[in-house]
Design a protein around this nucleic acid. Sequence first.
DNA 1: AAGGCGGGGAC
DNA 2: GTCCCAGCCTT
Length: 335
Amino acid sequence: MRPECRRRLLAWFDKSQRELPWRQTRDPYRVWVSEIMCQQTQVATVIPYYLRWMERFPTLPDLARASEEEVLLQWQGLGYYRRGRMLRTGAQQIHQQGWPASALEWRSVAGVGPYTAAAIASICLGEPVAVVDGNVERVYARFMGDSTPGESLQRPAAAWAQAWIDPSRPGDWNQALMELGALICRPQQPQCSQCPLASECRAKTEGRIDQLPVPKTRRPTVELRLLTLVPVFGAELGVELISEGSWWKGLYQFPTAKSRPVAIQGPTLALLPRVRHQVTHHKLAFESELIQMAHRDSSLFWFPSDQACPWPLPVPQQKILAAARDFLNSHSPTR
DNA sequence: AAGGCGGGGAC
DNA sequence: GTCCCAGCCTT
């Protein structure tokens, strides 16, 4: 890459960058939260969560003092719930020890890996450390015409990005590469005609744009069926804590036939519509029965069916809850 | 080095 | 349907 290229990329970034809620600040708390939320999650998905989060936890102490359940409730629907838990743990660390003063120190904060440490340090501290995310790997592979397969791109991409980082604007350089990957050098249908680097892009000049980067290997999809029981007592529904060793452990779910083989018995009110959901390489199909309970089983957590569940539910459970409400509303005696 | 971990945007 | 997203942690 020539210095001229670097200048063009930064000029493009100055002109074309999106206005994002965390771009108006160098407050490490806000930048940190945004970086954690953005892990493996598209920016458009993050924005509403980020805005709600900042209303509920405006400052680091607010987060450090919050309960894990309250944090998970805010995180509900974002996925990768360990991120939320570790954000809280990290807030407690920083609340005690003070703010990290370098990328290296950021690495010791819970949930902060090489990418996040470099992102925060470059943006908030002006430290010249390059980030490598999926965008940077893709831009690198195409720009340099590197056909290293996806799993192994990180190392060469890191060396390249670090060699060309602008020491006077490290945060902008990092964000410019990622923004280019998100807006122009997209996985499918890259907009090469608008790319500030097109003239020196090897994939472009060699006509290999649609062959780079070489994709990662994928695991075959596994399909699973699960039977869920939705306990009803009066106007309330019961959920249970998801145990260790299951997906979404620590969140809540309607009991499954497997987790509660005998405790839940009673007449079936309805078979609810099947809920489909995808988890990594698994396809899940939830089949749910609404069960009339004879008593308010104290081993379950009960809440009014017409109110929001006060405990964090993973998305498929939210869909089951919606289906149960639909049924109860259309069959309520007052209707 | 490989696997686990969510959910959804965009085509 | 497909691919993959501002990754990290554990084994």
